[in-house]
Simulated scan of single mutants.
Amino acid sequence: MSATVGIASPQHLDQVLQSSRFVVVNFYSTTNSSSTQIAPIYERLSQALSRPGAATFAKVNVDTQKDIPAAYSVTELPTFIIFRGGKVADKITGADPARLQAVVKKLAADVENIGSSEGGGSAESWRGADLPRGYGDITSQIEVQRTELLNFDSSTGGVRVLFEASQPSALSGGETISTKDWVESDTDEQLLLFLPFQSMLKLHTLQITSCPPVDDEDAPKRPRTIKLFTNKPHNLGFDEAEDMSATQTIELSEKDWNALGTANIPLRYVKFQNINSLVMFVVDGDGDSNSEKVRLDRLRLIGEAGEKREMGKLEKIGDEPGE
């Protein structure tokens, strides 16, 4: 699954800029040979360096999004613009892999500096509940490009929105059809989420935010029963998750959700030491709604992160034959 965000509108770009400290945007055209040539290199950089709330890689098709390239004076393809804190920090024109790699490697160092605070999480990431004393937000340890979410309604947000650093739009009064920064289940109330990690984690708490509309008899429900499985090499099937003994089973009720729609779920810490992946199975929903759907807005992992694994062959990207 690609880690690169395809920008669908100027408003979508604004949302991405607000939700991530660093954003790299590739302005391209499918009919431009230079854009096509450098696209695989950009995709590999995106997969290696994307971090929720810290670094986001995006792309704008100039053939379908005319207003965005005009706003940033893009006249040559491809053009790469690096944003820091929502403002333009650097601009690269043309298919120049060496310069793109040099700028992005500097960006990678800045991202790692952010990740070193609060046990590897982003200090500025929105959370719906306080951190337990002595622990940090380690959501940035999720290897986003390898996550998998099963049985979600594709008309709502994809799996990446669960880890966005921004406050859910439902809490800021900005929820619209075009925003959809949440996930809903599709054919029934169940969801299966696979989360691989960049390092071994000691997981202390899950913070799950669910903000379905109130006073709507057809609104999706909040999760009720959740089963957690640790150290799985890939996602489970629904029948498998139903039958398998879970590392921990959680039963939520209305009293567990705070005013921000967040359930602060303590885990059996001894069972969540040294884990490299987590499967979260939402079994059913809670509430009087007529809907057979469950909604998730945000997910935060709280605990301690071990040593990060090496960035791999990032330094060699662009050095292969033909690049």
Rank of each mutant, 00 (worst) to 15 (best):
S20K: 00
L162M: 07
I177F: 11
D288P: 04
S210L: 03
P196C: 05
E124C: 04
G174E: 12
D286T: 03
R127Q: 11
A89R: 02
S166R: 00
T147P: 09
M200W: 01
A259S: 15
G261Y: 10
N235T: 15
A246P: 15
Y72N: 08
P168A: 08
V283E: 10
N258C: 11
E240V: 10
S210N: 05
G128P: 01
G128L: 06
I7V: 15
F83V: 10
K232E: 12
I275L: 00
L267S: 05
S277L: 06
L45H: 03
F163I: 04
G6M: 01
T31E: 15
D215F: 15
T187P: 00
D153Q: 11
T209E: 08
K293F: 07
S29K: 12
K293L: 03
T225F: 12
T156Q: 07
R298M: 06
G306L: 08
L203N: 09
E320C: 01
F272K: 01
Q198D: 11
L195H: 02
L314C: 05
V62S: 09
D215Y: 10
I41T: 07
S19Q: 15
D130E: 14
I41S: 05
D297E: 10
L107S: 09
P266N: 15
L171D: 02
E112P: 00
F229M: 10
S35M: 11
N258G: 07
A259F: 13
T176W: 00
D137Q: 02
M200C: 06
L299G: 03
F163K: 02
W126P: 03
E164K: 00
W257D: 02
G115R: 15
N61K: 06
T209W: 02
S34L: 12
Y135T: 03
A259Q: 11
E118T: 13
R21G: 02
E143Y: 11
R224F: 10
E315K: 09
R295E: 05
V111T: 15
T247Y: 00
L107V: 13
R127L: 13
P213W: 04
V88F: 00
R44K: 13
N231K: 07
